[in-house]
């Protein structure tokens, strides 16, 4: 496993095209945080967790499924090909969003891009949907995989245990990635998880468990690739724990005064975006002026999409859509 990991890591570290697209997704994630955090106190910011997003949602095939953690749903949807303006319109409940204003785009991504959301609003059931999409691929004899991402807090729901056990028993092609940012609102992971780590639970299900540095985009991507290959071969699921830190409050409006400021500062200095940027510049995979251009273009792209989304029309009350509740008008 270690030799396999070292080899995969070395391969990823030299893959300029992949790393640049991951870097772009991380830049985009941070810019989305900036505009969404300003517009909505209910925004769940991703700052500090961008490497998990880049490692999980880059390089998927069109027939794969992504079942993102809600903290990362928007960039995941962009990575799957959804239109940024439509996604941001979904934050503001506009007609131009995928839902026409019926639900929040940062909780449910667009199914037409094979993104599965938190349909029940409860944490946990997405892990079962992931078993389901993988089972559908298996029954169709396709090697499409599903990547399912969830928080440390979510891993304490019964759904987590039942889904991982089912995926193990049926050898389903799912890559389960825990985006462990060490908090569930105010509850530290250490008070939510009895095991030494979340990866440590994997042997209990009879599947591989991998503890990864969630701020190292390259290493985490290598771990994800190994798990994806295993899933495509039909060898079953993997549980990866990506250890990172929630820099912002649970919501933008949460002051998060229940944890020491030194911890936040220490993790801030391990910024995953700066780390990948250093690697790209040092290895000559990105030039400084290209980097500056990328940053500027990303900022402009996000600002423009947000401005358009905010100017988009609100739905009228007639859009309540009694006809949308059932297939036929049975309301």
């Amino acid at each position: 496993m270690n030799a396999q990991f070292a080899e995969a890591r070395a391969r990823v570290a030299e893959d300029g095209a992949l790393l640049r697209s991951m870097y772009e997704l991380m830049l985009l994630t941070r810019e989305i945080d900036r505009v969404a955090g300003k517009a909505d106190g209910h925004w769940h910011a991703c700052e500090g967790e961008e490497a998990v997003i880049a490692a999980c949602y880059s390089g998927l095939r069109p027939d794969d499924f992504a079942v993102p953690h809600y903290r990362g749903m928007l960039p995941a949807s962009v990575a799957r090909g959804a239109d940024l303006r439509a996604l941001l319109a979904g934050l503001a409940g506009k007609t131009t969003s995928h839902s026409g204003g019926r639900y929040r785009s940062d909780v449910c991504g667009p199914i037409e891009h094979r993104v599965i959301g938190l349909y029940s609003g409860a944490l946990g059931p997405t892990l079962s949907y992931a078993a389901g999409t993988a089972l559908a691929a298996k029954l169709d004899r396709r090697d499409a995989v599903t990547i399912a991402v969830f928080g440390d807090g979510t891993s304490n729901r019964g759904d987590f245990h039942e889904a991982l056990n089912l995926a193990a028993v049926l050898k389903l092609g799912v890559v389960y990635v825990c985006q462990n940012n060490q908090f569930a609102i105010s509850t530290p992971a250490a008070r939510g998880v009895g095991a030494r780590s979340i990866a440590d639970r994997a042997p209990g299900y009879g599947i591989p468990g991998v503890a990864a540095d969630g701020n190292d985009a390259i290493g985490l991507r290598a771990a994800v690739e190994i798990a994806i290959e295993r899933a495509r071969r039909g060898d079953g699921p993997t549980l990866i724990e990506a250890l990172t830190y929630r820099i912002s409050g649970h919501l933008v409006a949460d002051a998060a005064d229940y944890r020491p400021a030194e911890d936040v500062a220490a993790w801030r200095s391990r910024d995953p975006l700066a780390r990948l940027q250093r690697h790209l510049l040092e290895c000559g995979l990105l030039k400084r002026d290209e980097d500056e251009r990328l940053a500027r273009e990303t900022r402009e792209r996000v600002d423009a999409a947000m401005a358009q989304a905010q100017a988009d029309p609100d739905p009228g009350a007639d859009a309540l859509g009694l006809q949308a509740v059932f297939a036929a008008a049975r309301s």
Binding site: A92, G93, K94, S99, G101, R102, Y103, R104, D314, P315, G316, A317, A319, L320, G321, L322, V325, S331
Partner: peptide, 9 residues
């Protein structure tokens, strides 16, 4: 009908 997200809904 489910409660919509947009303020209008």
């Amino acid at each position: 009908i489910p409660v919509g997200y947009s303020k209008v809904l």
